[in-house]
Design a protein around this nucleic acid. Structure first.
Lengths: 225, 225
DNA sequence: CCAAAAGTGTTCCGTCTACACCCATGG
DNA sequence: CCATGGGTGTAGACGGAACACTTTTGG
């Protein structure tokens, strides 16, 4: 119960964002090469400092907006990293966030402008400082939650086929899923709606397009895949 | 990828610890009345600032040690709270940790010395700032993990009866559990060992004492209750 | 002798898993 | 006409849930 402001050093607080996307049936990560010291030229997550007039959550959303031009994306705090020497320059404590975005929504110009690119999760290079640990934690979180929260839709367009949805699960969980069992479970979930629309791009026969009915989910937010 | 140290304000970083204990078949929380401004006299979690020469995790362990005199306790980071106005005095960003301790190990003198006491979770008062949110998050975490991690033993003495263990689960999950099913599951877990010892304190007939074999758990860290 | 807690099995039901073939269509 | 991905059902195994009585002994 004893706290003193005096005699304690302040620290920089930053946010780093693990941005997952989904393309070609693979999980991808948005990373770039650091354009400044310390760590210039190393692969790194995208991040920024928490300003004086914004909460940490707001800072994360601002930084993500700067990078993607998108707001109201799915984003969750993952973990706070506070080793003394984690940043070689100053004492920086970083709060890691995990965001899910639909790759198609992303503005390719902004991507180049910020010097970031999509990299397959399986081919991820060594990253700056403790950023690899951040990614590892984010994946653990994702795997744990994908069966109890409707996360997967954030990685897909509004309309998607069941095969696409299944590929998201397979990419996140890193294992194959039986098609018939998967579809059986999906059918029992009310808020995944079949539409009348048909996707003809990926198959000759055409596949029914589905939609996540958010409103229906919120009325009865139970989920178990 | 663009970071500047200049032009960004630093912040105080603190840790606040949600300390759970278990007594009289109830979950309890260690809280005290703040002995200083801001918030003097309000109920509060125990916390402290992160020093310049220690990591955030180390700070949490140091603060917990100051309070309890115990080291190597179970402790996990819960969430980082960073609202701008969460501390009325200065900008303080706080990392919340959740610790589990066996009430019996605790030194009653240290308890008084720091002005903290055990309070039943169900009778928790309104706490300082966002500390109620911290507790809520900690409980959510606890509930989620108690079935996949051997947490419960941290709330009990080295030797415990199955009834005590069941009461821990009931207190954390907030629901009753069928005795026979519970004991059946426990029997199938190798690293919960029955000893030859008998506890005669809580019943006339006496109950077998069990022990958590940590080494055995670490050799095969699979757990599902 | 009785109150109080410890200890013990079986049945049922629902859920998960494994598994293979036909359909529709564009090229 | 054939290659490609879309779509469908069933049987058996397994795990979780419900449920009631006997045992021991201190007071």
């Amino acid at each position: 119960m004893t706290e003193f402001y005096s005699g304690v050093q302040k620290a920089f607080v930053s946010v780093d964002i693990i941005i997952f996307g989904f393309e070609d049936s693979k999980l991808k990560l948005l990373i770039g090469k650091r354009q400044m010291d310390p760590g210039r030229g190393e692969w790194s997550l995208y991040g920024g400092f928490v300003g004086a007039m914004e909460s940490v959550d707001e800072a994360a959303n601002r930084v993500l907006f700067e990078l993607t031009g998108l707001r109201n994306l799915y984003m969750k705090q993952v973990h706070t990293f506070g080793a003394v020497e984690r940043d070689p320059g100053e004492r920086v404590i970083s709060v890691a966030y995990c965001a899910l975005i639909n790759v198609k929504d992303y503005d390719r110009h902004l991507l180049e402008e910020h010097g970031v690119q999509w990299v397959e999760l399986n081919k991820m290079p060594r990253l700056y400082s403790d950023h690899n640990d951040m990614v590892k934690r984010a994946i653990t979180l994702l795997r744990r939650r994908i069966n109890t929260e409707p996360l997967s839709f954030n990685l897909l367009p509004d309309l998607f086929t069941l095969t696409q949805l299944q590929h998201v699960y397979e990419a996140v969980l890193g294992e194959e899923i039986d098609k018939r069992n998967f579809r059986k479970r999906i059918k029992s979930i009310d808020f995944i709606e079949k539409t009348e629309l048909i996707d003809k791009l990926t198959s000759k026969r055409g596949a029914a397009l589905y939609r996540f009915n958010k409103q229906m989910y919120e009325e009865d937010p139970s989920f178990k895949l």
